[in-house]
Design a protein around this nucleic acid. Structure first.
Lengths: 146, 146
DNA sequence: GCCGATGGTCGATCACGTTGACGGAACGAC
DNA sequence: GTCGTTCCGTCAACGTGATCGACCATCGGC
């Protein structure tokens, strides 16, 4: 019993790939990138902004968890919260100009790293990997869904 | 761009599977199991025990990180530290009787969950998943190796 | 108007690690 | 032998990604 269990294997792979994305972003001039930022920049509306609750739902996490991310990005000057004109309870998380540049580079960084992974594994195995991961998640129910 | 990035997909799948193992162990009478314990119980010598440093190396993590795990398991009564007769600097992490039962059940729980995943995906895709994950890790270098 | 649902926030806590620094024992060279 | 180096375990601080519970203001249907 030397081999790691499946959960650990996926965790290590996730960290490896995440670290590569962060390193890639570092080279692109965003040294304070964190893997978790992806949960925001993959889901935010680039022009109009998005409510925190919607971001949380899209990223399948709690609104409290998303708030920590948004707090962090706001401190770094990538987003700001503006009141939602349609709902006085709500605020819209909106990208700053710097934030739009960050999102653009981050998506390129993710695309570059995933393209590398795809080259390493081959198209068929890469798609199979993603499919298998999605099935594993699906079959166990999604944490912060609904 | 709605789909999650690869790193997040692997992270979520890891957590899903890890949570299932913990739930399985809960049913087996070990309600205080944590996913991280696997790093110990997959690598410890069941009879003679293993040094902390060796555990850390086998689990590919820092000795400080491993120490936190061992502290936790010691507090719960699953392992104890005994001086290494062959090296006065070292201590051997040795399973208690309860710890041996825990390890046995934990390995069964992991096996059960992985068998379920294998059924869901099919043998071929399951093996492909593990292979792809290992390649992704390998190609990026292993964190606490050497 | 009231009242339940919704949006955001605060506070505490947890899981799983990391880097840095350090003290004590061991070991090899001389 | 004793000197420097290496190795073992430990303490302290921090980073990352979350969770749950409580709370208040607002919204919207009745």
């Amino acid at each position: 019993m030397g081999e790691p269990d499946l959960a650990r294997l996926m965790l290590e792979a996730s960290r490896s790939v995440g670290a590569e994305v962060v390193a890639n972003l570092d080279e692109r001039g965003f040294p304070d990138a964190r893997p978790g930022h992806a949960a925001v920049f993959m889901h935010i509306d680039r022009r109009s902004g998005t409510r925190l609750t919607d971001l949380a739902r899209r990223a399948r996490m709690t609104k409290q968890g998303m708030m920590l991310l948004v707090d962090d990005l706001e401190n770094r000057g990538y987003v700001r919260r503006v009141p939602d004109p349609e709902d006085a309870r709500a605020k819209v998380v909106r990208l700053t100009a710097r934030g739009r540049r960050y999102v653009a580079e981050a998506r390129r960084a993710v695309a570059a790293v995933e393209a590398r992974a795809r080259r390493e594994l081959g198209d068929r195995r890469y798609e199979a990997l993603r499919g298998a991961l999605e099935e594993l998640i699906e079959a166990r129910g999604l944490s912060a869904e609904v």
